[in-house]
């Protein structure tokens, strides 16, 4: 890590000083022998960015070279991903691939993005997946998805807030409308924070959100968790039923993982996969991620590649139905 961090860390005598030391360069041509760039295709501050920094710190410790997080936001996370797709496949440039850049945007920005989410990358490891949860304002009278469906069919319709147009939450709203048989009134916000505030204030009765950003508000009781869009109930919220249990066949996790440009040596991919999984299975990391509402990933490199392939195929028809286009 950098001089600054080392200096500040030493100043306070932190235990972190150990990993903040500038690591000695490894001898010979063996990978890794120089700092690794980890591109986060979002602006700083989001869940992905946060976890990326955790992972970077972990990998740095295990690999013995510094892992530097670099934010390259823009265009549904495609700007940063494109940069990595074109970088040299030497194992020194990685990207936080995610549901936007490698799941949904390939369909939304079809013809505009100059990378293929599947073939232009060597996918390394799934880092975290987060279930989607539907929450409602406590005074809205909505307790179950049945209530929501009834309200949607009534004259007024049902407003559902999301963190933005073209997000996985937006597509969930579209899909749910198809299942109920009437269109839901989608209210996009600029980020999950403002959307959650509108739900708490009662301006919008319902919201589709990822569990990490909603977990805190559910625990505080400022919103009610109506349904979890995952295959099984979430261990941290065992009392919240899934969509399937309530008769709606809908399950979707948002996720992010590590990927490198296609052509990265298999040995490097294997090593990164091993170190990432080892890092993620450490108990205190698991605890931190569970607090966030996320599940640490435990897929092989091939497994993650296959996972990305399935996601791209899954979202394409929903994107079409939602009408989200870049034009």
């Amino acid at each position: 890590m950098s001089w600054t961090l080392r200096r500040r860390a030493l100043l306070a005598g932190l235990p972190l000083a150990a990993i903040a030391e500038r690591p000695a360069l490894a001898q010979g041509g063996a990978w890794p022998s120089q700092p690794i760039r980890l591109v986060v295709p979002f602006a700083p501050g989001g869940t992905t960015d946060l976890v990326a920094r955790l992972v970077a710190a972990g990998l740095q410790e295990r690999l013995g070279v510094s892992v530097v997080v670099e934010n390259r936001a823009g265009a549904g996370a495609t700007v940063g991903s494109e940069m990595v797709a074109r970088a040299a496949p030497d194992g020194y440039t990685l990207v936080m691939s995610n549901i936007a850049s490698h799941g949904i945007s390939p369909s939304v920005y079809r013809g505009r993005i100059r990378y293929d989410a599947v073939t232009d990358f060597a996918h390394i490891a799934l880092v975290v997946s987060n279930p989607t949860v539907w929450v409602a304002n406590p005074r809205s009278g909505i307790r179950t998805l049945g209530d929501a469906a009834a309200k949607a069919r009534s004259a007024g319709g049902l407003d559902v807030a999301t963190s933005g147009a073209g997000s996985s939450n937006h597509l969930m709203v579209v899909r749910m409308g198809q299942l109920i048989g009437t269109e839901l009134n989608h209210i996009p916000f600029r980020g999950a924070g403002p959307a959650m505030q509108a739900v708490i204030a009662g301006q919008v009765p319902m919201m589709s959100d990822s569990l990490p950003s909603a977990a805190n508000h559910i625990r505080q009781g400022s919103v009610i968790a109506v349904a979890m869009a995952s295959a099984e109930r979430h261990p941290s919220f065992p009392e919240v039923p899934t969509f399937r249990e309530q008769g709606f066949d809908l399950a979707s996790d948002s996720w992010f993982g590590l990927s490198a440009p296609a052509g990265t040596p298999a040995a490097v991919v294997e090593r990164l996969n091993r170190e990432t999984r080892a890092f993620l299975s450490a108990p205190e990391i698991r605890a931190r991620l569970a607090e966030l509402g996320g599940t640490p990933g435990d897929l092989s490199a091939e497994g993650y590649g296959e996972f990305v392939r399935r996601e791209v195929a899954l979202w394409a028809p929903l994107v079409q139905a939602s009408g989200a286009t870049p034009d």
Partner: peptide, 13 residues
């Protein structure tokens, strides 16, 4: 924003 996110790893400890 950029500065704080660079300093975040320090605050973990």
């Amino acid at each position: 924003v950029a500065t704080i996110s660079l300093l975040l790893p320090i605050t973990f400890g």
